[in-house]
Amino acid sequence: MRKLPFLLLILTALASLPSMAICVLDTKPPYGGSPPVTMTIAPFTIRIDADAPADRSLMISEQKSTMGALVSYECVPGDIYGKETQAPLGPTTQDKMFATDIPGIEIRPIFSTGRATGRFPSTSKVSTGRVNFPATSSYSIEVYKTQKRLNLSNPAGDVVIGSGIIAYTWINTISPDTYSFRLQIGEIRIISTPVCRLDGEKSVDFNIVSATNVGNGVKRPLDFSLVCITDYGNYTASASLSTQTPTSDNAYIQVVDSAGNSDRLKIRVDDSNGNPLPVDASRAEVKSNIATDTPAKFTWNATLLRASGSALPENGKFNARAEIVLQVN
């Protein structure tokens, strides 16, 4: 019998504990606003050069969301609110950045009220009886390259991050269900462009030639190479030949002698396999699967020939010009 009053006291004490206050969404005039809002960023593709530096202070892309609307809550001072991220955005790395599906590409989401901006995540306490998320609010995402070399596989665009809701502002508890604003993004892709360097302009000096030399053909080497860095592991380089002064069959480059004649001499160019190259860029020599930062070498030859059976060029200097057209994939 002595235990009953003790139990009664416990029940009374439990019943007298105050309930915890939480912020309540207010959609009624004159102070209320709209229901929670989803802001969006459309799908986009980032384009970057393979030699772009890895730099956490240098954005490679920035995208801004659609605008919000006023979202208002009636609160009690001390209630909490804040910002959080979620998948498909990856885990945090450093400097308030987050990993993506491409190692070396990171995203920093930003929330703005129109007057102030903040990074993710964060938690704050309510200091008045109301919290307003203004209509001027929006999100943005900053994209950074944080690794010297990327490991890409799709020249049409590798997926950096899939579509989905990646960030939200919450109130009362950290949960996507308690959002006031949230950010829905479309799929983000990236395309890297190889960066190449050529070993300089090439000229072929035939030195002094005679009628006999020209009759037999005077051959000189025309070697060149280029080196490309790529985020796709290897690259393919093709080289073709083009001139503004072709012979009628597009097989030779016309040569102009010291008197301005262009029908006395011609030049044939052979590729690394000894096959004549047309001079209208209609056929190319292709070097495939060259490792990044490794030279693609071309060992061509240029042969000076007579263009007619009887007429000889005038004594003096002669010249011809053509362009090597390079393409890299």
Rank of each mutant, 00 (worst) to 15 (best):
Thr27Met: 15
Asn329Leu: 14
Lys266Arg: 15
Asp231Leu: 00
Arg119Phe: 08
Ser19Cys: 09
Thr173His: 14
Asn234Ala: 13
Asn301Gly: 05
Leu152Phe: 01
Pro5Asp: 08
Glu187His: 00
Phe206Ser: 00
Asp199Phe: 12
Ser16Lys: 03
Phe133Thr: 06
Tyr31Met: 14
Gly215Thr: 05
Ser203Lys: 02
Tyr81Asn: 07
Tyr235Ala: 02
Ile171Gln: 02
Thr92Gly: 01
Lys266Glu: 11
Met67Phe: 10
Asp205Lys: 00
Thr40Asp: 14
Val256Cys: 07
Leu198Trp: 05
Leu150Met: 03
Leu70Phe: 13
Val126Ala: 11
Pro88Asp: 02
Cys23Lys: 01
Gly90Arg: 01
Gly157Arg: 11
Phe111Glu: 02
Val269Tyr: 03
Pro36Met: 14
Thr193Trp: 05
Glu74Ser: 09
Pro194Gln: 05
Gly32Asp: 06
Ser180Thr: 11
Ala54Arg: 04
Ser240Met: 11
Met1Pro: 07
Ser272Gln: 01
Val255Ile: 15
Ser138Thr: 01
Ala99Pro: 06
Arg119Ser: 10
Glu201Val: 03
Gln94Thr: 09
Thr40Phe: 13
Arg130Ile: 07
Ile107Met: 06
Ala322Phe: 14
Asn172Met: 15
Thr66Arg: 08
Arg264Tyr: 13
Ala52Tyr: 10
Leu265Trp: 05
Leu7Trp: 12
Ala307Asn: 09
Leu58Trp: 11
Thr128Ala: 04
Gly104Trp: 09
Asp280Cys: 08
Gly118Phe: 06
Asp95Ile: 10
Gln147Phe: 00
Val279Leu: 13
Asp257Ile: 15
Gly233Tyr: 06
Asn172His: 13
Thr93Pro: 02
Leu150Ile: 02
Met1Asp: 15
Ala311Thr: 05
Asp79Arg: 07
Phe318Ile: 07
Ile190His: 00
Arg197Ala: 12
Ser258Met: 14
Ser258Thr: 14
Asp177Val: 13
Leu14Gly: 05
Thr117Ile: 13
Asp51Lys: 06
Ile10Met: 10
Phe133Pro: 00
Arg56Ala: 09
Ser175Tyr: 13
Ile171Lys: 07
Glu74Lys: 10
Ile110Ala: 03
Ile110Trp: 09
Ser153His: 09
Pro194Tyr: 04
Gln244Trp: 07
Val143Asp: 02
Thr243Arg: 01
Gly164Ile: 04
Glu187Trp: 00
Val143Phe: 02
Gly78Met: 14
Arg189Phe: 06
Gly129Trp: 01
Ala211Ser: 14
Leu183Cys: 06
Thr100Met: 05
Leu312Cys: 03
Asn213Glu: 11
Ser240Lys: 07
Ile267Gly: 03
Thr146Lys: 00
Arg283Ala: 03
Ser137Cys: 01
Phe6Gln: 05
Arg47Leu: 08
Ser72Gln: 09
Ala135Ser: 12
Thr243Val: 09
Ser272Val: 02
Asp205Pro: 00
Phe133Ser: 03
Ile107Thr: 03
Val159Lys: 06
Lys3Thr: 13
Leu305Met: 14
Leu58Ala: 11
Leu326His: 06
Leu9Asp: 04
Thr27Gln: 14
Ser138Gln: 05
Gly162Ser: 12
Ser310Ile: 13
Ile22Phe: 07
Glu142Asp: 10
Pro276Cys: 12
Ser153Trp: 04
Thr292Lys: 04
Ser258Glu: 12
Leu152Asn: 01
Ala135Asn: 10
Thr193Val: 08
Val325Trp: 15
Arg306Phe: 04
Pro5His: 08
Ser242His: 10
Val286Pro: 00
Leu226Pro: 01
Gln254His: 09
Ser65Cys: 08
Ser180Val: 03
